[in-house]
Design a protein around this nucleic acid. Structure first.
Length: 124
DNA sequence: CTGATGACTATAG
DNA sequence: CCTATAGCCATCA
């Protein structure tokens, strides 16, 4: 298999990034997940910050839907007015996710994985 | 090595 | 709504 977009930078020791990126990639379009939720899902409870670090490491042009990851409580993590904040709002809106004042209605859009999805745990 | 920083979160006042 | 605190840990200066 040739290199695909989203390949891990060499030198990283079996980074947690791959696991996190895979979990983020599993978020369905039109829905969102929280940093903490993703962390828990990949077996890293209370490591919400790691998810942020991992997404920061994401190569430009990656197909990983980073915009579907938001803070607990439905807030966009980027400062309002920043380019990233605008881009995230734009991408979410394009998927039908309503973003008001940098906030998302979690009752409506928070992703609750089905039992099937929970059972389908990729191994390392 | 140390200390600050940050795409976090929960709790308390 | 806000600030403060504590827990968390890779990354950077």
């Amino acid at each position: 298999m040739a290199n695909h977009p989203g390949a891990v930078p060499r030198g990283t020791k079996r980074t947690y990034c791959q696991r996190i990126w895979r979990a983020v990639a599993a978020i369905p379009p039109g829905q969102v997940a929280t940093y903490g939720g993703i962390a828990e899902r990949v077996g890293l409870p209370r490591r919400a910050r790691l998810v942020g670090h991992a997404l920061r490491q994401l190569p430009a042009g990656s197909s990983v839907p980073w915009h579907r990851v938001i803070r607990a409580g439905g807030r966009i993590a980027f400062p309002p007015g920043s380019d990233s904040h605008r881009e995230q709002c734009r991408r979410l809106a394009a998927e039908g996710v309503l973003v008001l004042n940098g906030r998302v209605d979690m009752d409506r859009y928070d992703w609750q994985p089905s039992l099937d999805e929970l059972l389908w745990k990729p191994r390392d």
